[in-house]
Structure formats: C-alpha cells, structure tokens
C-alpha cells in the first residue's frame, strides 16, 4: 500500500484548545477521535479567550454533527474556556484521505475495515479535479478485520452509517463494516 497523503489541518504547534478538541471521540465510532478522522479543521483562540472551532461533516447528512458540536462545547467549557462557538464548513469537502494511519489501525482493531485511497476528486479549494460522474470506485480487495482474509465480498454499498458499506468475509463468514473511501 502506498502512503496516504496526510492533509489534516493539524497545526505544527497545536494549542491546548486544539488538543482538547482533537481528542474528542467520534460519537458513532468512539474508538477514533474527530482529530483522527479529519473532521476537526481549525481551532482559533482570540486574546479574550474565545474559542472558535471549525468542523466539517463526513457526509452532508451525517447526523453526528450536532452531537459533535455539543460535545466540543462541553469539553472546552469544562476545560475553562468561557466562550466556545462551532462552525460547520463544507469546503474543501472531507475525504477519507485525511484520516490518519493511526485512525485506520484503530478502526481495523475495532472491526471496521479502513478505507483505501479515495483518489483525487476535489482539489484543495474544493474544485472538482477528478472523474466523479462515472461509476463509484469499488476497492479491489478489502481485508476482513477479523481474520485478515482478502477473500471478501461487498453485500451492500450502504451500511449502518452513511460513511460505511457492508461486507462479508468468505473465509470466516463474518459480516463486517467497511469505511468507504470517499
């Protein structure tokens, strides 16, 4: 597997507020944090101590966004920040390529096959740069997170959440979730 381009918004010298926000577990996938997933885009703090957090949804209809927003406010206010506001941004569109290697390993250990490379669909400014009107790219081999076999098949392109598809392992016969490359 070739290395993924790490395009997270993680700053080189993260602030205390960034670290608190980045460590927040995803409500649907508590094994990974919103920092790991690339959902957290920016955290700024002004000289009055006001914190402004920017997050982006994985999918437009992701129902976890409101919970994430509430959890961010809770986590930061209990850490002593008085004013916290959370902004949603859609552009540039989130991609699984922003997910860290650590997050991929955590997902696999949790029983969710991590995504492969999503490919260049949108550029840094959100402009469409790749072929997006053709058929959906289906990964060639998704490894079973339980037994490690590559002999698996997709049983449904849609799964328990918007970001996952449903697969079955032909070796150990277990069904499992796959985080779709997106």
């Amino acid at each position: 597997m070739t290395g993924f381009v790490d395009r997270r918004a993680a700053p080189t010298a993260p602030s205390a507020a960034w670290k608190i926000a980045a460590d927040l577990p995803d409500p649907e996938l508590p094994v990974v944090t919103i920092g790991d997933l690339g959902i957290l885009r920016d955290v700024t703090e002004d000289d009055q101590g006001r914190v402004h957090v920017t997050i982006t949804p994985t999918y437009s209809g992701c129902p976890a966004m409101e919970t994430i927003s509430d959890d961010l406010v809770d986590a930061l206010t209990s850490a002593g920040y008085q004013h916290v506001d959370v902004e949603y941004v859609l552009s540039p569109a989130w991609t699984t390529d922003w997910m860290t290697e650590e997050a991929r390993a955590k997902l696999a250990a949790y029983g969710i096959a991590p995504p492969g490379p999503a490919g260049p669909v949108t550029g840094p400014a959100g402009q469409v740069t790749g072929q997006v009107t053709g058929p959906v790219t289906v990964p060639l081999a998704v490894r079973c997170p339980r037994c490690g076999s590559p002999d698996t098949r997709e049983s449904s392109r849609f799964g328990s959440t918007a970001c996952k598809s449903l697969w079955v392992c032909r070796s150990c016969r277990e069904p499992f979730d796959h985080f779709k490359a997106h």
């Binding site: 941004v89 859609l90 569109a93 989130w94 959100g126 997006v132 053709g134 058929p135 997106h182």
Partner: peptide
C-alpha cells in the same frame, strides 16, 4: 461548497 460535497454522495 455544497455541490462539491454532494457530488461524491450522488455518485
């Protein structure tokens, strides 16, 4: 921004 996001979903 909305469209750039939605393009991947409608595929």
């Amino acid at each position: 921004g909305v469209a750039g996001k939605a393009v991947k979903e409608v595929a």
